[in-house]
Structure formats: C-alpha cells, structure tokens
C-alpha cells in the first residue's frame, strides 16, 4: 500500500503534464508483487476466520471500488490518456484490492476460526 501511495503521489505531482513512467512502473510492479505475495501467503493459512474475512473484504472492496472509481473519473475527466492513464488505473486497482485485504485480515485475525468454517483461498 505504501509503495502504491508513493507511486500515486509521484504521478500526481507531474499531472497534467507527462510524468516519467520508469519510477512509477517500478513502484507499481513492486506493490503488485507484494500484493500477490500477501495473497499467496494468506491462502496457505488453514485455521482462519475465512467467513469474516470475506464478509469484511467484500464490503470494503465495494467502498474502495467507489473511491477508486471517483479518482479514475477525475483522471479521465482531466484528459489523462494513454500509458499514464494505464499506470494510474493499475495503481488504483492495486490500492482498491490491497486495502480490503488489509482491513479484512485485521478483523478476521481476532475472530474464532471455528465460527467461520471454510477453505482458504485457493
């Protein structure tokens, strides 16, 4: 999340001009890799309150989809196009997926796994 926030600040500080994409793409790739790593690590946990995790994660995902959608709307309205828009959109995607995982995990780790039977994410 920190990497994608730094990337977003880096990109936004150059808009409406064209920011150098190298550092932004590097930050995006780093945040994406960490996100995938987190999901893989989490999927290997057997005893976990998965029902709570998915309940919280689903609602937070909905909320952050709205927030990310608003920001995407602003970028498109401001005539951001091409590779810059693509990188910004992917950063928003990582942001909108990562936060639900952080919040859902924070809640589910304090819940009793027995109250929430189910299989970990494949």
């Amino acid at each position: 999340m920190a990497l994608v926030v730094v990337g977003g600040i880096f990109m936004a500080s150059y808009l409406p001009g064209r920011p150098p994409l190298g550092p932004a793409v590097a930050l995006l790739c780093g945040s994406g890799a960490l996100l995938v790593g987190n999901v893989v690590a989490l999927s290997r946990v057997r005893e976990f309150a998965w029902r709570t995790f998915f309940t919280v994660g689903g609602w937070v995902l909905l909320a952050y989809a709205v927030i990310a959608g608003m920001l995407e709307f602003v970028f498109v309205l401001d005539q951001t196009r091409g590779a810059v828009l693509l990188v910004l959109s992917l950063m928003l995607l990582v942001f909108a997926v990562d936060i639900p995982i952080v919040l859902a995990f924070s809640v589910a780790r304090h819940q009793d796994p027995a109250d929430s039977p189910g299989q970990p994410v494949a």
Binding site: G8, I9, L103, S106, V107
Partner: peptide
C-alpha cells in the same frame, strides 16, 4: 502542492494501515 500530497500520503498509510483496522476490529469484538 507536492508537500500536501506527501502529507496526505502519510496520513493515508497511517489511517488505512493502522487506524481503520483497529476501528473495525473493535466493532467486531
């Protein structure tokens, strides 16, 4: 403007990474 972006970024990381998880966990508890 860039300085305000940086402060907002720090605020975002603290709020979403620490504050909101604590808030939600209390509600569920």
């Amino acid at each position: 403007i860039v300085a305000s972006f940086v402060i907002v970024g720090v605020l975002t990381i603290i709020a979403i990474g620490v504050l909101e998880p604590a808030n939600l966990a209390v509600l569920f508890e």
